[in-house]
Design a protein around this nucleic acid. Structure first.
Length: 114
DNA sequence: GTGGTGACGTATA
DNA sequence: GTATACGCCACCA
C-alpha cells in the first residue's frame, strides 16, 4: 500500500481534530481515548505541536487540556493568537482558559458513536 | 539502534 | 486540597 499518506497516530489525530465543529473544543485525553489510545494523551499533544506542519492546517486552537487551559498557546507563536481564534468562534476565553469548558466541550466519541 | 522529549492524565502521599 | 511522581506512546536527533 502506498505509504504516501501515513496512517500514523498523528494522521488519526489530525483527522479527528479537523472534525471538531466550530465554536467547540475538546481535550487531548478525549481524542486519545477516541482513537483507542487513552493513555497516550501526551502523544496527542505532541501531534498537535506538529500540527503546524500538517496539511491541511489543523484547528489546534480547538484542542485544550483537561481543565480547558490553552496549554499549547505558545505553539501559535503568539500567546494571544489561540485565544483570539477561540473567541472568534464564539468560545469565551479568560486567563488563557476556556469559559464554560463543559458547555463547549465536544466529545469525539459522541460523534463517532451513532 | 538508542535515548530523549513532550500542547497530558491519573494515581498516590 | 495541594504537591509530586509516574506512565503512556510516537516522533526527532
Amino acid at each position: 500500500m502506498a505509504l504516501h499518506q501515513k496512517d500514523s497516530f498523528f494522521e488519526q489525530v489530525y483527522q479527528l481534530v479537523r472534525q471538531i465543529p466550530e465554536g467547540r473544543v475538546t481535550s487531548y485525553g478525549a481524542i486519545a481515548r477516541a482513537l483507542g489510545t487513552a493513555g497516550s494523551s501526551r502523544v496527542v499533544g505532541y501531534a498537535m505541536r506538529a500540527a503546524n506542519r500538517a496539511y491541511p492546517p489543523i484547528p489546534a486552537h480547538r484542542v485544550v487540556n483537561r481543565v480547558g487551559m490553552l496549554s499549547g498557546k505558545r505553539a501559535f507563536g503568539s500567546s494571544t493568537l489561540m485565544q483570539q481564534l477561540l473567541e472568534n468562534e464564539g468560545v469565551a476565553v479568560v486567563d488563557d482558559r476556556v469559559v464554560d469548558f463543559d458547555r463547549v466541550f465536544w466529545d469525539p466519541q459522541r460523534d463517532n458513536v451513532p
